[in-house]
Amino acid sequence: MTLNLFYFLSFLAVLSALMVVFSKNPVYSVLYLIITFFTIAGHYILLDAQFLAVVHVIVYAGAIMVLFLYVIMLLNLNRESEPHKSNILKFAAVICAGLLLVVLVGSLKGTEAIVQQSGKAGIGYVKTLGEVMFKEFLLPFEITSILLLAAMVGAVMLGKSEKTNDTI
């Protein structure tokens, strides 16, 4: 059952990920990307990580993709206004993506042994996660949050730099 679900979700994830790339309409791309995120959330649930799955849906599908869709709808891209890219650029993009694939495959090849170890019950519960995050990995966690805070302050500063006087 779990294995069948895994194959189904994987098939859906790969298919929708391919459709993200092959769709002509950017809005369709975004919608396929949302489906991809949902299938990945499904994978997390199969791995017994419910918290991660729900947070993944809230953050990626619920917030980030809404912003993507928002921007794309505002830009109103269509065939006429689509910027034409030269062949060299496309070639470079393919090579970059291929290299990234090599790196990912290389780094994930040796992880088989680790995955089998982590089959503890209740590993995905908030309590377990919280204990790991606030005891074992407190420093990295705090540093990450400072990084995010810095990024947020930076975004606010960038948004503020163009000061105009016409207040609404």
């Binding site: 419910q50 729900v54 849906v57 809230i58 619920g62 809404v66 869709l69 709808m73 908030v126």
Partner: peptide, 25 residues
């Protein structure tokens, strides 16, 4: 009964906006 029930509700609420966005577009 879910271990993180509130978060599930939030997730559903956060994807609810797609109906409006897709319809509007």
């Amino acid at each position: 009964e879910l271990d993180n029930g509130i978060l599930y509700v939030f997730a559903v609420v956060s994807i609810g906006v797609y109906g409006i966005m897709i319809g509007g577009w």
